[in-house]
């Protein structure tokens, strides 16, 4: 059964109009071209060395000092993604779960390789465990809006093609 011209014309016009609406999202959007450096993994040992001071401060109970250092690193680097991961860890320990998930999400946005296999601190495994615990525990009923980020992170950490 061939399609009539008028219906085809309507379909073409609808697609073009819809594309026009969607094209508004392109204004001010980030450039699609990926940052060539963003996906390159930093050697785990190098990252772990860079955060030695933070971990020592945490072990010594100097939490404020560690927080200050992590916030500075999250803003200026180096390794801002890992700084966000540690901020997420601290928020999680305090029971501030929405903030923790926001930091975990910011970590992978800043450094795409932060949760890959072989990355520093085994961050992927740690966060996967936290998210599963949240999903089946405190967020099983009445999850906050950050549950979208939780699902996104679960899909991202699960792997698959990108």
């Amino acid at each position: 059964m061939a399609i009539r011209d008028r219906w085809l014309a309507v379909a073409v016009a609808a697609c073009l109009a819809w594309a026009g609406v969607e094209a508004r999202g392109l204004v001010g959007a980030r450039p699609g071209r990926p940052d060539p450096c963003a996906g390159r993994p930093a050697p785990a040992a190098e990252v772990e060395d860079a955060f030695l001071g933070v971990r020592t401060a945490l072990a010594a109970g100097r939490r404020e000092r560690a927080l200050f250092d992590l916030r500075r690193r999250a803003e200026h680097g180096p390794f801002p993604g890992y700084a966000e991961f540690w901020l997420g860890e601290l928020a999680y320990e305090e029971g501030a779960y929405p903030a923790a998930v926001r930091h975990y999400r910011a970590a992978v946005d800043r450094e795409p390789a932060v949760y890959d296999r072989g990355a520093a601190f085994g961050a992927g495994k740690v966060v996967a465990g936290r998210l599963e615990a949240l999903r089946s525990g405190p967020w099983a009923r009445n999850p906050p809006p950050e549950v979208r980020d939780l699902y996104y992170l679960q899909r991202r950490i699960a792997g698959g093609c990108e």
Binding site: C15, L16, W18, A19, E22, A23, R24, G25, L26, A29, G32, Y152, R155, R156, G160, E162
Partner: peptide, 15 residues
Amino acid sequence: TTAGVPPAGRVAVLL
């Protein structure tokens, strides 16, 4: 991506 379909991809499919 796991985050969704970017505007450029939507426009490309519709065009």
